[in-house]
Amino acid sequence: MIRIECPVCGQRPETEFTYGGDATVRRPEMTNEDPQAWIEYVFMRGNPRGWHREYWHHVQGCRQWIVLERNTLSHEIGQAELARDAARAWSRTSEAAE
């Protein structure tokens, strides 16, 4: 039973969550019409053996999407943050890069 530190609700068992997959793939902008960008986003995965950033949805709690660091080999749990915050930080870094 994996236990996830929900930033809103505290430590909760995995059975309250559903898994949402790789959180490192970034959705292209709505206006992006390049099929390859969408193929990459929808289908292609790094699938790391070790630490992984991934979405979990606290469906039986606060219904927030969470980005969790979790080790796919040892099942160790690392940091968790709201996906909303992760997305904001992401857009800030990409703006800075531009």
Binding site: M1, I2, E14, T15, T18, Y19, G21, D22, N47, R49, H52, E54, R70, T72, L73, S74, H75
Partner: peptide
């Protein structure tokens, strides 16, 4: 088990 894993070990749920 629903989440990515290479652990060859399953969970109780």
């Amino acid at each position: 088990d629903m989440y990515n894993s290479y652990a060859q070990r399953g969970g109780l749920p």
